[in-house]
Design a protein around this nucleic acid. Sequence first.
RNA 1: GCGCCAGUAGCUCAGUAGGAUAGAGCAGCAGCCUUCUAAGCUGCGGGUCAGGGGUUCGAAUCCCUUCUGGCGUGCCA
Length: 549
Amino acid sequence: MIKDILHQQLTEVLDALSLSRTKEFSVEIPNNTEFGDYSTNAALVLSKENKLNPKLMAEKLVKELKKNKSFKKVEIAGPGFINFYLSPAMYQQVFWEIFKEEEYGKSEFGNQEKILLEFVSANPTGPLNIVSARAAAFGDTLYRIMKYVGFAPAREFYINDAGNQVDILAESLELRLRELHGEKIGDFPYEAYHGEYVKHLAQRLNALEGNRVFMLTEKDRMDHLKEFALSELLEMQRSSLEKFGVVFEGWVSEKTLRMEGVVEEVLSYLTEADCTYEKEDAIWFCSTKYGDDKDRVLMKSDGSITYFVPDLAYHLTKIQRGFTQLIDVFGPDHHGYVPRIRAAFRALNYDDNMLEIIFLQQVNLFESGERVKMSKRAGKIVTMDDLISVVGKDAARYFFIARKANAHLNFDLELALKQNNENPVYYCQYAHARICSIIKKARKDKVYPKHFKKEMTAKLTKPEELAIIQKMADLPELLILIAQHREPHRLATYLEELASMLHRYYAHYQIVSAKNLELSQARLMLIHTVKNVMSVCFELMGISAPEKM
RNA sequence: GCGCCAGUAGCUCAGUAGGAUAGAGCAGCAGCCUUCUAAGCUGCGGGUCAGGGGUUCGAAUCCCUUCUGGCGUGCCA
């Protein structure tokens, strides 16, 4: 907000002095307060094209900038930085603008561009694990932020309800069911799903239908078992996600896509585009022509189709539905898959820049300092539900959001179990609760004004107060950056910084003081606004903003 | 072998897309509650930004290279 104003003013000054400005210059908040409230590298960046040395160029700019009364001081430092010191009056004006905003930071930046966010998309063969939880927190937060800055995003979950793993699921269920009926199974097959949840499914099916399923023919029985297991497990996943605050606009079933014939369509498109061939009884896609490192099978020699084809078909439906940017959030083990889908986009003459893949690195689980190895097939998983019930939705979401996507995440179960201040979510929530508590008391003491007025802002002059205003002024731009670069973790960093400033402010200044009503009201106005800004952040992260703790 | 991602304080991680003296939390040490929530605040210690080279006014950030770790490299999904 303030950066934009300064950037605009610099542009005007450059034009007034007829200086060239083809290269991008920036306005930043320096990390050292000695270098002013804001600083710009304009003279450094633009000196070459104006054939001036940076210092001289800076002097010219500063001479002009000094005419502006919003600045307390403008100075040149280092190799040619221009540092701005803003007058309290300017901060107060900005603060008033922030205060007035109904939904601060909201913007129309995204122009309602339709963006499809596909995430989680876990196999429906078991409960969701913590990797899915990470994807859910990440994707959902990104969705919320993108929407807030004016994009038209949609969340989608692709259901892999066709293919080998579903057959194995049905077979696993049948074995557990037979066990229930007293059959000796012996060693449970290695490939089968070993998780306890399969036993629970068997018990449920048994309670509902007894041994009726065994009367069916082999094929009918498998279909029935599949259908039952899938609907149960999907419902389980849906409800876990809902508990986590994540709701999808769309659930797209691979099976349905196959039934609708989209798969054949895609095959024919690829054939028409002349990029398929037959080899060893299989049909191949010559993806190497389009940047992949080997060709890929589309139809196996047994006549069945690989995962790739319906998935490609699914991606094409996204485009047909009018989405102009397709974001997939994948686990780290799928990166080898990307070149072939990009290749297919190119082969079919779609712009593969539309497709954007974000990789979430894995979550390593630690218990007593030991890495816990997880395997869905062997039934050794920590589920998303476990996680939520142990650490709570807020802490879990925060933990996942606060780390950037392409970094490994070490999740220490014991640490999470402690549920104390080692988890920064409490630090932020505490700041919010603290403000609420102060406001409550001020209301009780009749210090809290009926209406905040612009004149009140004049009492805000302390460096800490102006710094808080500066921090708040930064949010709209930050949200846009987060949306553009798909980096929701930066909101967590921002929130921690704001919380820290608030805690420090609270510790050093009496906010409500009976002796000075005007000052009290100005400070209440400030923390009231901080509370609102924090609420926006919490809401965007899907975390609650408690009134008391 | 090839490909993708990563390597920043004892630990977990940020670092505003090339900026000035690299930050936070936790852990350690020392302080602060007759005053609005001590889940807080203040101070101290802690670094060859994995190593090396390059690009330029300027590099944790960009390029090259070596090392280390994770993952991938199925007619699995």
